[in-house]
Design a protein around this nucleic acid. Structure first.
Lengths: 228, 228
DNA sequence: TTCATAGTTCGATCGTAACCGAAGCATCGC
DNA sequence: GCGATGCTTCGGTTACGATCGAACTATGAA
């Protein structure tokens, strides 16, 4: 008894529905204000404030003051991975929300996961990259091949630039909706950024979902085909 | 709001100290009775019973009746991974227990993580396997090389037998005490089993720690050297 | 300065869940 | 059959924490 680190603390932090909703919303990657987070939690600002203070004290959240606003983000990528992995686990056990709601299908199709693409499109992209030989799946990990490096340079991704960062280039991240892996890491981030830059897709206002334009949709599906 | 799977439920399940202690104890891999779990949780059997019922309803635990005993185990390896990953996260944030206690050093040296070796010795073993070229680290994943396969056959591990199982051969598992990876998967399990079979080490009664005999210690350190 | 907006702190209320004693089943050994 | 052990269910108590109204601080706009 009393062995090891205290998982009860962080479990309790995530265990409150209001806090869980806020954390899930912040998995969208963008910084949100206390008032916005109160909205997603379905509570008043006062209550949200105490929740946010607790989450920050627990090391899950970081805070940035800007004028009279306070922007909250997840403390780092480790928190995002923890949340997504818990989502994957929960989805596997059938711990789903009671009302699927109208936004569900859009979320399942394409959504943002911290800073990269997830959902059906995210899984398709990784599948296609593996099928074309751009990425190799070794064990549980992912590795970019030489072919992949040149392929990506063609569509405007500066791989050598990405390599210079300390962050791993390829990471696989388990998708809660698809129950399959999609591409995370700095490469995953760069790819999503390029889609947004090219105007193929854009982030929606209050949700984690990503909306592809008709043209962007065509380009994406052409660039990442699924073999028959 | 109301997006995705419900992480609050499992967060709340893990969020209670008594339940967290029971789950951590069960990460030791062996099945425990309700009374034993009440002990590790520091609560009476009645209370433990309700906790265990909740954990089982939540899909975290499985139960097996045997005579008048009820043996509880983690539902599957996914639960074990979730718990260990939360431990790693918690350790990284400094969410440590208040009293380190006398058993801490033993736990840090060598302990069981579901069914494989973790702690200092677990990390050393993987490091050594990689240094000798038996295992390759590719991206985040691990892959057994041909050399590794023959090396392992020499010490009595039937790799082809392990391959026939559906479970992945090599997995990397993040260690909460060392903050580095150790070897999981069916190969990790087989290696630990062989140590126990050879009498190099044995599991302790009430703890997750593993005790090496003086002779076993020498053999282990010889078999898995760290290069200078 | 004054007003408005964003956020925190205080105080009090309220619900829920953890907890244990006691009673109730089930299984084993005899 | 009997008592002993392992565990669950019931009932009632208690304590903690989530919640919000109201008051307070800070920044920005006019």
């Amino acid at each position: 008894m009393k062995e090891g680190p205290d998982i009860a603390q962080i479990g309790a932090l995530i265990g409150d529905p209001a806090r869980a909703n806020m954390l899930a919303a912040l998995t969208g990657g963008r910084a949100l204000t206390a008032t916005e987070l109160a909205g997603v939690g379905g509570i008043t600002v006062q209550t949200a404030s105490t929740h946010l203070a607790k989450l920050e004290a627990g090391g899950l959240l970081a805070q940035r003051k800007q004028g009279r606003h306070r922007y909250f983000t997840l403390a780092d990528e480790a928190v995002a991975r923890l949340i997504e992995s818990m989502m994957g686990f929960a989805a596997g056990r059938g711990h789903l929300r009671h009302q699927p709601g109208p936004k569900e299908p859009a979320l399942r199709k394409a959504r943002i996961c911290y800073d990269h693409l997830a959902g059906d499109y995210g899984v398709r992209m990784l599948d296609s990259l593996i099928a074309s030989g751009a990425i190799e799946a070794v064990g549980e990990g992912l590795a970019l091949t030489e072919k992949g490096e040149s392929d990506l340079e063609c569509i405007g991704i500066d791989v050598s630039d990405l390599r210079s960062s300390r962050r791993p280039l390829c990471r696989s991240c388990l998708d809660w909706s698809e129950r399959r892996a999609h591409l995370a890491g700095s490469l995953g981030k760069a790819l999503l950024s390029s889609f947004l830059d090219k105007g193929w897709a854009r982030r929606t206002a209050e949700s984690r979902s990503i909306r592809f334009s008709p043209e962007g949709d065509r380009q994406f599906l052409k660039l990442f085909p699924v073999d028959p």
